[in-house]
């Protein structure tokens, strides 16, 4: 890691005056330090926002408001994240390791860079780093994208929290010291076609100051599942978050979100269309899961992920609805 200076603002307003000189915002720092240790980036200054208590809260009233610096461990343990909000706690509890969850923050998780092994290694100057080759495309792509992978970069976005929050129509408040803007989480992420070198719309002089979920989601049912090769600390092959608004047995409204499927966390509108206004049965859940994979275009080594997604979407729908997925037959 190269040397850097360290700014320690005590308030949000103070943060912005330090965001110069090749500065990077640091919260938990897990993702940042990993890349700095790899010499992938060498900021001249880190602006530590962890000292700002005002950025760290879980407020449950009319909707849910989360401070960006709340840790994954705090989310996982929070007694406020029940009902529809449970999907957030489940995603947080399943991420990384206990040691990392104690430090890693919500906004840090949302903004972390991809885990693609080519992107992460100093040995590869890939398209996302400004190079002209996506090494995964014809290389070792078993963990890469099965959807939206035709734009020069085939990463999957690694944020578990994004997968969960997208199912709740989360909104992000972004400030730059002068203005504040609100961005739907769905619009927060950028595809490689939009910008191959960035995953989010967040600018270098901006800070996430709140993540919120609208009160209209209250009363929905939700669930989150991930499938990993290894059960202790592993990145998922597939992640699914589901939020259901039920009207008796009928699905009134629904969100089906896929993580580890595409370069951005994505809602599967194909699946949602199948489900909406229909009576939720095991068969319907299967159909929706199959439909969700209609636009999958796997790479040379990751075709198996399609099957896994079909399973995980089906199971997560069942779990969210309180149905036993294994009661539905193969």
């Amino acid at each position: 890691m190269r040397k850097f200076e360290y700014a320690m603002p005590r308030s949000v307003d103070e943060v912005f005056q330090y965001l110069e000189n090749n500065a990077a915002v640091k919260a938990g720092g897990i993702d940042l330090l990993d890349r700095m240790k790899e010499y992938e980036i060498s900021p001249g200054r880190l602006v530590n926002i962890n000292g700002i208590e005002a950025l760290r809260y879980i407020k449950n009233g009319n909707g849910l408001r989360l401070g960006p610096s709340v840790t994954l461990a705090e989310l996982a343990a929070s007694k406020k994240l029940t009902g529809a909000w449970r999907v957030i706690a489940l995603a947080a509890a399943g991420a990384a390791t206990p040691q990392i969850r104690n430090i890693a923050t919500l906004a840090g998780n949302l903004c972390q860079r991809p885990r693609c092994w080519y992107f992460r290694s100093a040995d590869f100057h890939c398209t996302r780093k400004g190079g002209d080759t996506c090494f995964a495309l014809d290389g070792e792509n078993q963990y890469h994208a099965i959807i939206g992978n035709s734009d020069g970069c085939v990463i999957v976005h690694p944020s578990a929290m994004a997968t969960a929050l997208l199912a709740l129509d989360a909104v992000i408040v972004i400030e730059n010291g002068k203005d504040s803007r609100t961005v739907a989480l769905a619009d927060f992420y950028m595809t490689p076609a939009q910008d191959i070198q960035r995953e989010t719309v967040l600018q270098a002089d901006e800070l996430i100051t709140e993540i919120s979920v609208p009160g209209t989601m209250q009363g929905w049912k939700s669930h989150y599942n991930k499938l990993k090769e290894k059960q202790a600390f592993d990145w998922p092959l597939a992640e699914v978050a589901v939020a259901l608004q039920m009207d008796g047995k009928r699905v009134k409204d629904v969100r089906v979100v896929l993580g580890a499927a595409a370069p951005v966390p994505m809602r599967s509108e194909l699946a949602e269309m199948v489900l909406k206004n229909s009576v939720l049965t095991h068969e319907l859940a299967r159909t929706a899961a199959g439909e969700a994979m209609e636009n999958a275009e796997p790479l040379s080594e990751n075709g198996y992920k399609v099957r896994i997604f079909k399973t995980m979407i089906y199971r997560t729908l069942c779990h969210a609805a309180g149905m036993d997925p294994f009661a539905g037959g193969v």
Binding site: R115, W117, Y118, S121, D123, F124, F135, D138, G139, E140, F233, W235
Partner: peptide, 15 residues
């Protein structure tokens, strides 16, 4: 090992 460059892609304890 990456088939195209011969470099190990998972030389860590994460992947």
């Amino acid at each position: 090992l990456d088939r195209n460059t011969g470099v190990m892609v998972n030389a860590n304890l994460e992947q």
